[in-house]
Amino acid sequence: MYLPKGYDVNPKNTNEFINISSLIEDKNDRIIEDIVSADDSVYLLTSNQNAYGIGSNQYCKFDSETLKKTQKPILMMKNVSKIFSGNASKYVFVLNSNQELFGCGYNYYGQLGLGESRKTTKIQKLTKIQNIPKGKIIDIQSGGDHSIMLIENENENLKRKLYSCGFININGLDKDKNTYEFTEIKSSLFENDNILEFSVGNNHTLILTSKGKFIVFGGNSWAQLGTGDTNEQSIPIQIELPKLRFNENIFNYHISCGFNKSFIYYSPPSFSNLEEDLIKLFRRKEFCDISFKTKNGEIIKAHKLILKYRLNQNQNEFEKLQEIISKKSIKESNQIFEMIYSNNSKINPKLYSEIKEIINFK
């Protein structure tokens, strides 16, 4: 794994990449499975499930050193399954293989969720977080002063819920003070609805639900909530998703927060295995050299034979295919391909039912 030679890694040179993993003292522990960036630190998870820290050593001490920063990865904890932090965060969460959660770092607003008894600016060593909501921790995302946790519980009707802690007005809890423990974000907007994904910026949060709701809350000084103004939203509110030219499906939307920015992007649906097989066949040279007569019935008939050949790897079927279609230019073949697969993402609805029947074709 390579990172730029930044100030906290190597102050002598800031314009080259260096191999960070090679700086891990244990040569058997240099395969990096995940990397998590924080405000002024970087955390590494190795294939041996060990967590390392490098960079600022001021808020979350990687070890007992008194240095403000360390220029080599320091082992923080063993038997780690996940590391969570955020680009605006001076704190980190570490989940071990027993689903126990630990945290350390900046905690002035209670954003580590350690509870009222741990009100302090800094938690310098990884400390176990008590009173975690029941269920499986799917994700934790950290802002500058608040944290959001996604919990999945198979025993509840609403399987996925969000929990928050940290600074008042940006934690989405509508409290009159900072919240020092992870507390469920309750809103009528979440009734009978599950969380698909969420993203946390410096002081704002974006959420997508399974019923197509786009929910936002938090700081808005830079218009990062997309509400059309710069008014702060202390509780979750719903805004409209942008209209796209596709047949939108909420499962194909994705969200991402920058420090004081927000992004929504739409990813066209992936092909099913059946559709992928057909596309691969069309792209293979032997099929590109063959194009179809323009009559729709013969196109469908060719599709059936192509799929039957693909599923059975039957050379006789391929020969029959050649008999019913005539050789023409690759360009014409590709034109028909585009006709059948409209928008480069979905099979034309008129032919989709026909193609589904191909599996049972005899």
Results as ranks from 00 to 15, higher is better:
101 L>T: 03
70 T>R: 07
70 T>Y: 12
328 K>Q: 11
307 L>W: 11
222 W>M: 04
176 D>F: 03
130 Q>K: 07
257 C>G: 01
343 N>S: 02
126 L>G: 13
32 I>F: 13
185 I>A: 10
247 N>P: 03
104 C>H: 10
72 K>R: 07
141 Q>C: 09
218 G>E: 04
19 N>K: 06
187 S>K: 06
270 S>Y: 13
104 C>D: 03
179 T>W: 15
240 E>N: 11
65 E>W: 12
192 N>D: 01
321 L>R: 04
221 S>D: 10
247 N>K: 15
162 L>C: 03
134 K>P: 02
42 V>P: 07
77 M>D: 08
277 D>K: 05
302 A>V: 00
178 N>E: 09
287 F>P: 08
102 F>G: 00
308 K>P: 06
318 F>K: 12
179 T>S: 14
356 K>P: 07
108 Y>R: 02
243 K>S: 10
196 L>W: 00
288 C>Y: 09
155 N>C: 04
254 H>M: 10
256 S>E: 06
15 N>H: 06
123 I>Y: 05
267 S>L: 03
49 Q>F: 11
313 Q>Y: 07
95 L>E: 09
205 T>V: 14
139 D>Y: 00
290 I>L: 13
239 I>Q: 04
338 E>I: 15
326 S>H: 09
178 N>R: 01
338 E>L: 08
322 Q>E: 14
112 L>H: 10
32 I>L: 15
140 I>A: 14
275 E>A: 09
223 A>M: 13
229 D>R: 10
315 Q>E: 05
221 S>I: 13
260 N>L: 07
124 Q>H: 15
221 S>H: 03
115 G>C: 06
125 K>Y: 14
83 I>C: 09
159 K>D: 04
189 L>T: 01
38 A>H: 13
159 K>H: 01
46 T>C: 13
100 E>R: 03
347 I>Y: 02
73 P>W: 12
111 Q>D: 09
130 Q>D: 07
33 E>I: 12
100 E>M: 11
17 F>M: 15
297 G>H: 12
39 D>Y: 12
307 L>P: 08
73 P>A: 05
351 L>W: 10
264 I>F: 05
156 E>D: 06
245 R>Q: 09
55 G>H: 09
314 N>G: 06
